[in-house]
Design a protein around this nucleic acid. Structure first.
Lengths: 130, 130
DNA sequence: CTGTATCCCACGCGATACTG
DNA sequence: CAGTATCGCGTGGGATACAG
């Protein structure tokens, strides 16, 4: 889909993704969306799906497991009929918010510069090999 | 390594990596290592290789191209014999430093919490399926 | 010295189907 | 409702070889 598109449809931005190395072990493609939701209030599984329509079940499950394993979110099973599950952000998770926001803010501030740099670079490239 | 640094198994640092979404288009597996080097002084290609022994030629080239395309680093060809190339960080690149440091600092501060959370999570998992 | 060209594999993620 | 199971694909990136 979008290549030069830093925003999702809610005007949000995303960072980071998979693979090895430190924060890669903490964050994945959908982590920030989930974090954004859970920072505002606890959410049930399908609430999250509704809030982030593009995510698949599998990916959401994976994201939540990863965040849970890293102590960023909490999973609370509510024994009702039928079973309900509630996800909440932990204190540790809250401390992640600021660093991430700083990064996101940088991205927002400089996305124009970056796109300009890309255009310039790509143009030079085209001009060089017709 | 002049850094406040969370480590992987080899004592190194890193965030972010590949795939789609904004910063993924800016940073890859080795970007931070390169940035750290270039923040201190301009570097030649093989200087960077020596400074970051684990990176392959291909990956370093790719990282540098990506950072160059995004206006984070500059590539200066020095017409000498044999050809020399110098990489320097740009003003835009310097603005990336702070946000990244904030993230790295978070990671450093909370890596213990994360590891503890993981151990707890994994233990519960093991206990559940013997 | 500074790259480019291939080959190849691992893994993140989506699509789809099934379950308690 | 809240997942798990399977499959296949795209892509990052390591290894290796070659080139200006």
């Amino acid at each position: 889909m979008p290549d030069t598109a830093p925003h999702d449809e809610h005007g949000e931005i995303a960072i980071s993704a998979p693979h090895r190395e430190l924060l890669d072990h903490v964050l994945d493609k959908w982590s920030l969306h989930v974090l954004n939701e859970l920072c505002e209030r606890p959410n049930r599984f399908n609430e999250l799906r509704r809030a982030i329509p593009e995510v698949t079940q599998k990916s959401l499950t994976g994201t939540l497991r990863r965040l849970e394993r890293n102590g960023i979110v909490e999973r609370a099973v509510i024994s009702s009929r039928p079973v309900a599950v509630e996800y909440r952000i932990t204190p540790l998770g809250k401390t992640l918010r600021h660093p991430v926001d700083v990064l996101l803010e940088w991205a927002t501030t400089h996305i124009g510069d970056i796109e300009h740099a890309r255009a310039t670079f790509d143009d030079a490239d085209d001009g060089a090999r017709p």
